[in-house]
Design a protein around this nucleic acid. Structure first.
Lengths: 168, 168
DNA sequence: TTGTCTGCAAACACTTTGCACTTTT
DNA sequence: AAAAGTGCAAAGTGTTTGCAGACAA
């Protein structure tokens, strides 16, 4: 996954690093660029595609030097990253999960209940279909969340083995 | 909405009342038919299409005679109703929302962020599309959750008025 | 210096659990 | 009588907030 991307994506042409974009966002609002906020953008944009607050917190704890950040600050900063358009937030079960939303095309997910993997896919046909549905109901669609649950290829074969989590 | 339905729906032909079906389910598992469980099935199947635990609890509190049920029992029984196939559980934001899943065809939702309404719709084309996507990824789909967010017809016009909830 | 940010601890909302007592079977 | 269910209070999650001290601008 590139740290920087510069392809065009619908409306906006992307050409800043996530960190730059975040700092711009902060400045525009009179917010400050702190050690903690920097540590979080850097870490988030350099790593995993999907994660939750607790995971991020743990990783920052294990990080090198002064990348230590408190739990409230992690939550506060994640919300800002969502506002800034860098991350997208979704809720899986009762837990918030974040994914990159900057320089990445719109997509939906296949969620494996075996290994908890999130597999991305996208479908133009789907967007068209949803537009049609919305207008049929005189509904102004702003977005959607679609998660197909089931078993991924690996878990289909490994099915009855130890891989499964306790809760389904 | 009928309390009893007897049309066929995919695999199973439906011909018992929700209460009958629930009691059958309980008996099959050596569970007992209690005043509380009866009160809950009755109330749930006689009422609203979408609700959450707290709402149900409040309504039972205001109910006639001895329909009073404690919070833990409400949660425990809702889980049983889901197991019994009478209700379907979904998570909206961080809160569990239940809807009827017995005698009702499969459908998805339009969620109005203005008035919180949930509008149902269904689309065969969608199912076909999702099957195709799943098999393309060698994924065994068990189900899906699709919520299109936006503004319903009423809220589109009433837009800037007081109807909006605080949180979007 | 000024006003924002952080971390701590406490508060929150929703849901689940341990346990003694009540009920169904 | 035996087994399962209930209600209460308490414990759990995951997330948010009040506030005093720390820090960026």
């Amino acid at each position: 996954m590139p740290l920087t991307s510069d392809f065009s994506l619908g409306k906006v042409a992307v050409s800043m690093t996530p960190r730059e974009r975040f700092e711009e966002f902060l400045q525009a609002r009179g917010k400050r660029i702190t050690r903690q906020r920097r540590a979080i953008v850097e870490h988030v944009s350099a790593h995993h595609e999907h994660f939750d607050a607790e995971q991020l917190l743990a990783e920052l704890r294990g990080s090198p030097e002064g990348a230590r950040v408190s739990r409230p600050t992690v939550y506060r900063t994640l919300a800002e990253l969502v506002d800034a358009g860098l991350l997208r937030k979704m809720t899986l079960d009762g837990r918030a999960v974040y994914e990159h939303d900057y320089g990445y095309p719109q997509h939906d997910h296949l969620h494996c209940t075996g290994c908890q993997a999130l597999i991305e896919f996208s479908s133009d046909e789907l967007s068209r279909l949803l537009d049609a549905v919305a207008s049929r109901h005189q509904f102004r669609a702003a977005g959607h969340r679609l998660i197909v649950t089931g078993l991924c290829r690996d878990c289909r074969s490994t099915r009855s083995r130890a891989r499964h989590q306790d809760r389904v």
